[in-house]
């Protein structure tokens, strides 16, 4: 413990450092509150490219309401969103724009690939010379929802899986580990 930075970190956060990071109840409670706040208000950027866009609109409409899960505020601008729902066939011309808009999204960001075409090219995987065979070739995808088009229940299930993924993430614990590793 001769490193002065480590000593400084130990002095400041001593009451949080008991045992392994994460066993302390304050850290885990704050992490759970932060994760709950983040997963209850996912703002999607809807990338409605083809027929899956209609089912996405149907999911956001009144019969299967996406706003019940907090994901009803569909922003058209990538700077204000944290989930990108790629809904529809991704052509090679559009792939350039998808990568550009994904880069413009602020962290933490997630991608949900909706439909067979966005997951793996769909029925165009064999002969489609204009189709990108799966959007995960250009952006990292968190959840794939398959179907042609996936029913609103399936899309809501995919959004719930993204919520499960966010619930497992921890902000405070990771920051403490990063600071102690410096």
């Amino acid at each position: 413990m001769s490193d002065p930075t480590r000593h400084f970190v130990g002095k400041e956060t001593k009451f949080l450092e008991e045992g392994v990071y994460g066993e302390n109840f304050i850290v885990t409670s704050v992490d759970r509150i932060l994760s709950w706040a983040r997963l209850s208000s996912i703002w999607p950027m809807t990338f409605g490219l083809a027929c899956c866009a209609i089912e996405m609109m149907a999911t956001a409409a009144s019969r299967y309401d996406l706003d019940r899960f907090g994901a009803g505020v569909m922003r058209p601008s990538p700077r204000q969103t944290d989930l990108m729902i790629v809904a529809g066939t991704v052509t090679l011309k559009m792939a350039d724009r998808i990568k550009r808009l994904y880069d413009q999204m602020p962290e933490p960001k997630y991608v949900l690939s909706m439909g067979s075409c966005a997951t793996s090219g769909g029925p165009y995987w064999q002969h489609g010379y204009h189709v990108l065979k799966g959007v995960d070739l250009i952006v990292p995808v968190d959840v794939y929802v398959t179907g042609c088009p996936p029913r609103p229940e399936a899309l809501i299930d995919g959004v719930l899986k993204i919520q499960d993924k966010i619930r497992k993430e921890s902000v405070i614990k990771r920051k403490l580990q990063e600071r102690s590793n410096v």
Partner: peptide
């Protein structure tokens, strides 16, 4: 079964 979602392509 309508809920066809997974976290990976191979899982489908």
């Amino acid at each position: 079964i309508l809920e066809l979602s997974n976290v990976s392509r191979n899982g489908m």
